[in-house]
């Protein structure tokens, strides 16, 4: 019983639940609110925020898990977004490594740049697997929209990812 409770309360279960909630926001609110016709990528921001607060492995795993969930609601091949978000999560973590004590604004900047990079990596991965047609100037505008949105949303998302991925679990007794 304790083992099951520990599994349910583990950070990976929390990750799935939080990602599910953010994914529902991505497919509803963020799909309809489209500045300049482009959708801001909340899931990419979440993955980048996780990467910026944790090590490379955790960042990549959060990206892969969130990406699989994102792929499940898209019509694109299952695994494409997983690869893209895996790269974004690991990339955000790697970008933070040179800074021993990063300031809050530096972290927000890293999250924004990493999230925006997902809009460039996606068409590249699409082209690699043979789904061409998206490598054009539109992706730069899409990246700019996500970058601007991430400047707004990275602040609240960073504490959310810290809580989601915190290892200490309080179950009343251990």
């Amino acid at each position: 019983m304790g083992r099951i409770l520990r599994t349910i309360a583990s950070r990976w279960s929390r990750l799935v639940l939080v990602a599910l909630l953010l994914l529902s926001l991505q497919t509803t609110l963020f799909s309809e609110v489209r500045p300049f016709g482009y959708s801001a990528q909340l899931m990419a921001m979440f993955v980048a925020a996780a990467g910026s607060s944790h090590d490379v492995r955790v960042g990549a795993i959060v990206g892969l898990v969130s990406g699989f969930m994102f792929d499940a609601v898209l019509a694109t091949p299952l695994g494409i977004s997983a690869v893209v978000f895996g790269v974004v999560g690991a990339g955000a973590s790697l970008m933070m490594q040179p800074f021993r004590e990063p300031t809050w604004w530096l972290r927000i900047l890293v999250v924004s740049v990493s999230a925006a990079s997902s809009e460039v990596v996606t068409p590249l991965v699409n082209s690699v697997v043979g789904l061409g047609g998206w490598l054009n100037l539109h992706m730069l505008v899409a990246a700019l929209v996500t970058f601007a949105a991430a400047l707004l949303f990275a602040g609240p998302l960073i504490p959310v990812t810290r809580w989601t991925l915190s290892e200490k679990v309080s179950l009343g007794r251990d």
């Binding site: 492995r57 955790v58 990549a60 795993i61 892969l64 898990v65 990406g67 699989f68 792929d71 091949p77 299952l78 695994g79 494409i80 997983a82 690869v83 895996g86 697997v129 043979g130």
Partner: peptide, 24 residues
């Protein structure tokens, strides 16, 4: 813990490649 994370990472990455191949 690091070893487990690395294993999980490798498994997820392989799963992504596997599913892309399967879907295409």
């Amino acid at each position: 813990n690091k070893t487990n994370l690395t294993r999980a990472l490798v498994l997820l990455a392989l799963a992504a490649v596997f599913f892309i191949t399967l879907d295409l």
